[in-house]
């Protein structure tokens, strides 16, 4: 899958950005497009982050870079919840879903999978949701990731705290599934199905 690639050639970048390869090379060489040369050769390589930054900078639609699906990471220590969410989101068709059952897994997957959105339970076995929120928000690379807390906690004080730690939305368990989908689509600026 293209969107699972992390490093691109100048040709691939030209194709994604819908411009000539010469333009890409020029941009690479004058530093506007960040990248590296393969050691021992002159071949230029561009990491996905640099490409995304470049595309955003030049207002090139990201659609060609993405699969069109939004990447969602579901983090919950309850396997039943994880399974249900995976089923629910995949059935919708607009989401690419990965799951994690601990804060540790969630960290690794965030790095690898670079999700657009994280559905996060407040109480995890190894770390609390608010800490996860803060960690993500303190890293510049994940500024655009949406965080939605999905939790059974009923204490409004705790909810408030979570929102202050950087969460974008709070959904209380149990929930109406269609409302959850609607909220997610809204946050990710997805067009309705």
């Amino acid at each position: 899958m293209r969107n699972s690639k992390t490093v691109f050639t100048t040709g691939e970048v030209a194709s994604i950005c819908n411009v000539s390869q010469q333009t890409i090379i020029r941009c690479f060489d004058n530093g506007r497009l960040k990248g590296f040369r393969v050691p021992g050769s002159r071949f230029r390589r561009i990491p996905v982050d640099a490409l995304r930054a470049f595309m955003r900078e030049n207002e090139i639609p990201l659609e060609n870079l993405e699969s069109g699906k939004k990447k969602v990471l579901v983090v919950d220590d309850d396997a039943n919840i994880v399974d249900m969410m995976k089923d629910l989101l995949e059935r919708d068709g607009r989401f690419e879903v990965r799951t994690a059952e601990s804060g540790y897994d969630a960290g690794i997957l965030t790095e690898q999978f670079r999700p657009d959105m994280m559905l996060l339970d407040f109480k995890l076995p190894d770390i609390n949701g608010n800490v996860v929120c803060r960690r993500i928000r303190s890293n510049g690379a994940y500024q655009h990731m949406k965080i939605v807390i999905v939790s059974g906690v009923a204490d409004p004080m705790e909810v408030e705290e979570l929102m202050a730690a950087g969460a974008d939305e709070f959904i209380k368990k149990p929930f109406a599934v269609d409302k959850v989908i609607a909220k997610m689509a809204d946050l990710l600026a997805l067009s309705p199905v």
Binding site: N80, S151, P174
Partner: peptide, 22 residues
């Protein structure tokens, strides 16, 4: 008790309710 119950009960309730809706 309620805080613990909220977490513990709401997960299965969310699953029951969510699956039923699906």
């Amino acid at each position: 008790l309620a805080a613990g119950a909220a977490h513990e009960l709401n997960n299965p309730l969310a699953v029951i309710s969510g699956r039923a809706q699906m």
